[in-house]
Structures are given as C-alpha cells and as structure tokens.
Amino acid sequence: MNGSLVQQLPAWGAVAALAVLVLVALSGAAADGLVTARAERRRGGGFAPVAETARLLRQRPRGTVAADTLLRRVGVVGLPVAAALKVAVLPVGAWVVSDLAVGLVWFNTMDVMVWALVWLSGWGPNSVHSLVGGYRFLALALAYELPLMFALTAPAVAAGSLRMADIVAAQDGLWFVVWMPVAFLVFCAAVLAFSLQRPFTAPLSPDIAGGVLAELSGVERLLLLAGRYLLLAAGSGFGVALFLGGGAGPVLPGWAWFLAKTLVLFWLLLTIRRRVPALRPEQLMAPAWVVGLPLILLQVLVVAVAAVAGKG
C-alpha cells in the first residue's frame, strides 16, 4: 500500500492527461458521427464534431431574460472540468497525475458534482424546458447514484484499498469483471447516466425542446456537449481500471493496453446507447431501488465473503 505501484507524473502530466482525454472523447464523437451517417445511408460523418465545434464557436453568445447567468455558466463549465478532475486520479498504465489514497471516493465525488452542475445548467436560463430537464436529471440521479456507489465499493473491498493503483494491482491474476459482473454492469449503466447518454437522456430529450440544452448556444452549448463525451470517456477509463485489469496485458506497455481497453469500452458504450430507447425517470426509479439495489448489495456481499475467505 505504498505509492510505488505507479509513478506520479510531474506538472505537465495534467496537460497530457487532459489532452488524451479530449482525444479519446473526440474519437468517440467522430465514430458516432460516422455511425449516424451510415445509419442514414450517407457518406462521411466523421467530421461532425469538428463542424459542430466550428459552428458553435461562430455563434453569438445568448442569454435569456432574468436568467441566472452565473449559475448557468458554473453548470456548463463544470462538466468538462469534473471530467478532467476524474481522470487526474486514473492510473494510465504505470503513470498517474495524482496518486490520491482515496482516488475511488474522489471519482465518486466528481460524479456527484454532475448532479449540481446539470441542475444548475437547467436552472440558469429561466426557461421551462431547461428547468424541467434539470429536475429530471436529479430524478435520474436519485435512481442511479446508490447502485453506482455500491458498484464502486465492490472493487474496493476486493483490493482492500481506495487507491486506484492498488485496485488495479489487485487484479493481477483475475480481472474483477469475471467475478463482479453485476457490479460492472451497474457501473456501465451509471456511466451512461452521469454522462447523460441514452437511455438516460430524459434531461435533454426532444419532448422538452432539448431540455437543459434548450437555451444554450455558442461556447456554452459546446462545453455541455463536450462535457458529456468527456464524462463518458472518463467513465470508460475508470471501468477499465476498476474491472478490466487496467494496463495489464502481454507485450505492449501498460499505457497502450490501458488506452486500447478504454477505447473499446468507450465505443462499446457508445454503441449500446444507440440501440436503446430513452427511459422516463419515473420508469427507472422503482426498478433501480427494488431490483438494482438488492442485486448490487448481493454482489458486494459475495465479494466481501470472498475477500474474507481469501485472507483467512
């Protein structure tokens, strides 16, 4: 349990981590554009995120009457920042920006920030559509957050540590996904939820004119859209570190394995979310509490018993 498992990068590490995160997210957005174009039987599409960025950077900033501009801005700026702070504790192969002893709790804290940030982006514009969207996100959050927290506990129990590097190291022989399938699935669902992807798009859904996005334009819209992809990319990275053995793999160096696995999980999540219809929050609430929560508690129980038996 010392810090020697991973090497903490110097100050430029934060820059590198953010750059890699942005590139991964961009690859996902481009892949999504390609797949969308193929589904609509036209060529190209991979250029979509660039075109969208260019479009939004040209747009005039826009506010609404009697809006709370400060809170709206905090909300939209916060999403990409939260994603960046998440990956700060993520060990990429043998490197990490911040080898925090409670890295797992830090990840959890940053995803709780998303609650506040999405709600603030919905509250700020003083528009019915975005307001309803913001409240819908809180409803979703009440459903997914507890299962997510317990899903995070399972690897921590098995590793006996909250440090991300220890959790990765504890999967030396066997990846956690093998004996914690429920925790992994719940975690993946929660990643889709906190990055506002389908089936958890109710806060942004077309029935409320785009919800939280309804009044955003220009760079603020760009930040929120990018924030969703960044959060999904960061979530995939944590999925790899917590359940898929981190950078473990033959021949290639750890960071390469880590990035490869992250990209695969990221694209997999992007594909899944294309195939499922959106869920209304009130449809999710009872199943999440009455089915999801007991299942994940059972998973933690199994892991705890195995951990005790393993030590004893």
């Binding site: 002893a101 409670v102 709790v105 830090w106 959890n108 804290t109 709780v112 506040a116 709600w119 909250l162």
Partner: peptide, 19 residues
C-alpha cells in the same frame, strides 16, 4: 483524506437535494 473528500461528496449531494 477520506473525511475531507467524503465531506465534499456528501455536502454537494445534500445541497443538490436541499435545493
């Protein structure tokens, strides 16, 4: 470390609900 981070976690969550 733990107390500090969990304070931030809980308080942000609680404030989101309190709102």
């Amino acid at each position: 470390e733990y107390i500090g981070v969990i304070t931030i976690l809980m308080m942000v969550m609680e404030m989101a609900i309190m709102a």
